[in-house]
Amino acid sequence: MAGVLDEFPGLTDPRSGRPLMERTVIIANTSNMPVAAREASIYCAITVAEYFRDQGLHVALMADSTSRWAEALREVSGRFGELPGEGGYPAYLSSRLADFYERAALVDTLGGDTGSVTVMGAISPPSGDFSEPVTSHTKRYVKAFWALDVKRAQARFYPAVHPLQSYAEDARAFAPWWAAQGNGQWLALRRRFLTLLDEQAQLERMARIIGKDALPARQQLTLLCAELVNEAFLRQSAFSPIDRVCSPQRQAAMMRLLGRFIDLAEAALAAGVEPDRMAGIGCLRELQRMGEEIADDQLPRLAELEARLERDFAQLVPAAAGTPTPESRDAAHG
């Protein structure tokens, strides 16, 4: 809590240049405060949100964490002597969660404006078990779910959002928005990346049995491309001021660049280039680190990177037609 209270007053709103605190309300209830207040805190917060919603404003509500809120519910219920349900939580846990999440809405206000409340609830399930009551009941009422993955978190892969376990039911509806940001192929690229990542998950299981080297070239290429999507696009560095946030325009450009890499790599594979040599191209490291190196206002550098990518592949493909020359082999492995 101290982190939020310490950081927020110092933040400036990138759109207005004014302190972000001017349009923020923080409801703080630390865990050593009375338990009944903890149960009340999310109702208090969402009531504040609705107050602004009714003025025709768009409100984002972050509740961290609803598991601790449920913990409070359980404690109070125990004090009342109610019969415990699943996991010791009271049986009405799911209807209380529904009451809360259903208060997220887009409304026409009496004043004729449009206002909205968007709810982002954090859940912290014990030992990452998504089948526990708070997670499973919450998933019944929400349309988007960001699952943080233990393996990614352990490798300090930030943000540890698991691309396959997470979902957004409304994803299709965003395609026009992304097109307006300059990424008309967003839906296609998204599907392509997800397919790659899904194939990677299955191939890694296979590779565990027969070894990575024994996989056919096409599958090795899938692993290479999926790894690149992870490293270059999904991973951001929280320590880096450049990479901490990524503008939609930059996301779009990076996405297109990676899509281009996949296209070129597949064409090269068809021309007989081994995936190992593609992994050795000079600009691969730059691709992997582009999020950290190229800032939001340096988008032309991404275009330069794309040009280099095209050149690197152009060198690979004709070389593959004959026997690899010693220079090209050095280039591939150096």
Binding site: T30, S31, N32, V35, R68, E71, A72, R74, E75, S77, G78, R79, G88
Partner: peptide
């Protein structure tokens, strides 16, 4: 006990 969370806090 149900209040162990609050107590530890």
């Amino acid at each position: 006990p149900g209040y162990m969370y609050s107590d530890l806090a």
